[in-house]
Deep mutational scan, measured.
Amino acid sequence: EVHFESHGEEQAMRVVKMLKKRNLTVEVKVENNKWIITAK
């Protein structure tokens, strides 16, 4: 499981795309203006 924190939507979306290319399940949450990305 991979956790990634991002402060910007643009950066977060880039990471999500990259993770999805690896056929991982990606969950995105926004907490306290931080984008929290979890990949399994």
Rank of each mutant, 00 (worst) to 15 (best):
K20H: 06
V16C: 14
R22K: 11
H7E: 13
L24S: 02
A39S: 04
N32F: 06
E27M: 11
L24R: 03
S6C: 15
V16P: 01
M18H: 07
N32H: 07
E1F: 13
N32Y: 07
V28R: 00
E1R: 10
Q11S: 09
L24N: 04
K40M: 10
K40R: 12
T25R: 12
G8W: 14
L19H: 02
V30R: 11
V26L: 03
A39G: 08
V28H: 00
V2C: 15
Q11W: 13
V28E: 00
A12N: 01
I37T: 01
M18C: 13
K34Q: 05
A12V: 07
V15I: 15
N32T: 04
E5T: 11
M18G: 04
L19K: 02
T38P: 00
V30L: 09
I37A: 00
H7N: 11
R14F: 09
N23T: 02
E10P: 05
L24Y: 15
E31C: 08
R22G: 08
W35V: 05
W35Q: 00
E27T: 14
K21C: 13
E10K: 12
K34E: 02
K29I: 09
K40S: 12
E10T: 08
G8C: 15
K34A: 03
T25W: 13
A39F: 12
V28F: 06
M18V: 07
R22C: 14
K17V: 14
V30A: 04
E1Q: 11
M18N: 06
K21D: 14
T38K: 07
F4V: 06
V2M: 13
V15Q: 02
F4D: 03
M13R: 09
K21M: 10
I36L: 06
K21R: 09
E10S: 10
V2P: 03
T25H: 13
L24H: 06
V2F: 15
E5L: 11
L19P: 01
V16G: 01
E31Y: 09
V26N: 00
A39T: 07
H7A: 12
K21P: 01
E27Y: 11
L24D: 02
K34I: 14
S6N: 03
K34V: 14
W35G: 00
N32Q: 08
V15H: 03
E5Q: 07
A12Y: 04
M18A: 11
V26W: 03
K29P: 00
F4P: 04
E1T: 13
T38A: 02
N23L: 09
Q11L: 13
E31W: 05
E31T: 05
A39E: 00
E10D: 08
T25D: 09
E9V: 09
E9I: 12
I36K: 03
W35K: 01
H3G: 03
V2W: 15
K40L: 09
T25N: 10
E9W: 15
I36H: 04
K34D: 01
I37V: 10
T25S: 10
K34H: 06
K21L: 12
E31P: 00
T25K: 10
T25V: 12
R14N: 07
T38N: 04
L19R: 01
V26Q: 00
Q11F: 10
F4T: 02
K17Y: 11
H7K: 09
L19W: 04
T25Y: 13
I36Q: 03
E31L: 11
V2L: 14
E5F: 10
T38E: 03
V26G: 00
R14P: 00
V28Y: 07
E10V: 10
K17Q: 12
M13S: 04
L19N: 02
T25L: 12
R14E: 12
V16Q: 02
K17P: 00
M13G: 03
Q11K: 06
E10F: 08
F4G: 04
S6W: 09
E1S: 11
R22E: 07
K29L: 08
H3T: 12
E1C: 13
T25Q: 12
A39L: 09
V2Q: 07
V15G: 00
G8V: 14
H3K: 12
K34C: 09
H3I: 14
S6M: 15
A39R: 01
K34W: 04
V28G: 00
E9M: 12
E27G: 03
S6I: 15
A39C: 14
K29S: 07
K40Q: 10
K40G: 05
M18R: 07
K29Y: 10
H7Y: 14
E9F: 15
E10I: 10
R22A: 12
K29M: 07
K20L: 14
N23R: 09
I36G: 00
N33W: 05
H7S: 12
N32G: 13
L19D: 01
M18W: 14
W35P: 00
H3E: 06
L19V: 01
G8A: 13
M13L: 09
R22I: 11
G8Q: 14
E9G: 06
K29T: 10
M13P: 01
G8I: 15
N33L: 05
V30S: 04
V15T: 04
R22Y: 15
K40I: 11
E5N: 05
M18T: 04
W35F: 07
H3F: 12
L24T: 03
I37R: 00
R14C: 15
M13E: 03
F4I: 10
E10R: 12
V26I: 08
L24M: 13
E27V: 12
G8N: 15
H7G: 06
K20V: 10
W35D: 00
N32R: 05
T38S: 06
V15P: 00
S6V: 15
S6K: 08
K17A: 14
V30C: 05
R14H: 09
N33T: 04
E9Y: 15
K34M: 11
